[in-house]
Design a binder for these strands. Sequence first.
DNA 1: CAGCGCACTATTTTT
DNA 2: TAGTGCGCTG
Length: 658
Amino acid sequence: MEVLKALDLDLLNDNQREAVNVFNGPLLIAAGPGSGKTRVIACRTANMIINNGIAPEEILLITFSKKAANEMQERIVGMIGELNLPFIGTFHSLCLRILRTYYFKLSLNKNFKIYDPADQIHLMQKIIHDVKDKSLRELLDRISVCKNNLLTPLEAPGEIQEAYRQYQSALKEENAVDFDDIIFKTYQLLNKFPEVLEKLSFKYLMVDEYQDTNKAQYEVLKLLAKRDKNICVIGDADQSIYAFRGANIRNFLNFGEDFTDLKLIKLEQNYRSSPQIIKGAEAVIEGNSDHMQRNLWTEKAEGRRVVLCNASNEKAEADYIIKTIQVYMGGISRYDIEADRVSDVASGYGFSDFAVLYRTHMQGKILEELFLKSGIPFQQIGAENFYNKSEIKDVLCYLRAVFDPSDETALLRIINKPVRGIGAVTIEKIRLYAKNLGIPFYQACQELDTLPLNDENKKSLAEFIKIFEEFRLMATKEKLSDLIKNICEKNQIFDLYKDKKRQDNIFGLLGFSVQFDLLPPFKGLENFIFETAFMQDKDIYDENKNAVTLLTLHASKGLEFPVVFIAGAEEGLIPYKHSEEVLMNEPEERRLFYVGMTRAKDELHIIHTNERNLFGENIKIELSRFVRDIPSEFLEKKEHVLKNRRKKSKNEDQLTIW
DNA sequence: CAGCGCACTATTTTT
DNA sequence: TAGTGCGCTG
């Protein structure tokens, strides 16, 4: 009874309550921004388990990101306690789990590896020589699109067929799959082997952020839902921003065609933003022809109008943001032109209540620079994928190699790190030797007697093998975190990376690893490797940290902040223009801007500049067409100029006019 | 094999 | 403009 009460179904609005109580048959929940989506999903799950006796194993809950999965899990635990929990995770984690169980049905080996984008490039380099990484990336992206659309090499466009085919056979040879394969192969598995499908226990499916599902994911879903048809998808077509990754809004708009007798529930009450922000955002999204009319409303009190600030250039833009935050945080009083209002709010906010959103990472750079100068604590998300940071990647590759020495990509990365006299030439010799004998690379390394190397090289190699074997032994006996510490020490990783930020990253990874210490040593290592395969910056970022968050519009999806700044609201940036006259998919760009706007709870500041430095050249730039769609009555207009342009002047950053 | 210096290219979004 | 990548030299 105690638990039942915790569900608080009475606190839900009528539509939410209905969504929480309908379990059977296909259900589409069209949930506007801030409409309490997460809450509904969590309540619905708890309601199923507690009030309706549905077994957790029968429930499958798919989220868009790992972070969202964690949040959802916490939320549900908060309601039902640490009971048995349903599976909560991303498409990738679900499919990986299925593949790990049924790998043998496909021609996969046990312990197949997962290649991340960097590994993909390495692999592609082996197939196509003397081509720039960037072109390889482009090629891989095209292959990715094929996989997302369930196209095999034979079905792929002619120009990339051969590359795709060779890439797949190279992956197979290295016993690896890439991110897209995880979905594609799961589809093939479930499609070909009904008995596997039958064995899966899921009877009730829920998919969050459904508008960003691609074809491959959708087909997997259809298979999973085939028997029981209890599928509930939740999302908002206006927030679909991943078309470039193969997401297809048609999956959302045409859901009813695949699932007849569809029930539709709309969540239109917004619990997040002030009326001004909602009105402004709706004015923008209504510019899309495929926008479905709806009535987003709120009971929240009137707030400030959307602030539209015209800054002279990108430095003035950053300055405006910084000064505004400082004012709210009570740092500077001489700018208190709106004194009464400022003193109103200043007390309540912490640094973590502010976020700066931008279209491209390059904008984040200037902001980072000036934030650093200002002394305001901040954290930047995703400028580089966490796992792409070289120091993290090094440690992870050590672990991967230790876990599975046949992981050649990983082994090669660390074999000469730190420098131990095993350079490119030596590696090539070993590789050739291995190839001739048809043996794995690491095995070749161990055949010191017959390897065609000089004594110097052999000595280096022998030393490497010795230390490496120590790690392998340790991996079976010691805690994961100790293994990592040891690897860092013995390889002088911290000498290699003297930069404090990089060292902190490694400590971050180490901190994350501690939770795997509870598992038996080798198992802990294994799980850690699988977990980090999809790891992202976002997953590491700490929302409780007292810092302003800097992030891209894409990365802002699913988050909310009391005060949001959208920087660079300019033609060319949003909508983004790819040099020349090639404009990006305008409706999608509009949705992206909409997503950004709707992150704001109390205040939204949109900033645009007159001039922006691109490539060391100052380019005149105009206000974004999306902003022009916001009626003036919802706007509060401002200007911000950096007055003093003398270089290195001590006063430079203080002379500001409001 | 590693470090340095020159030259060239780059700016979309990511599970 | 600035960061990277390649090639040359020690």
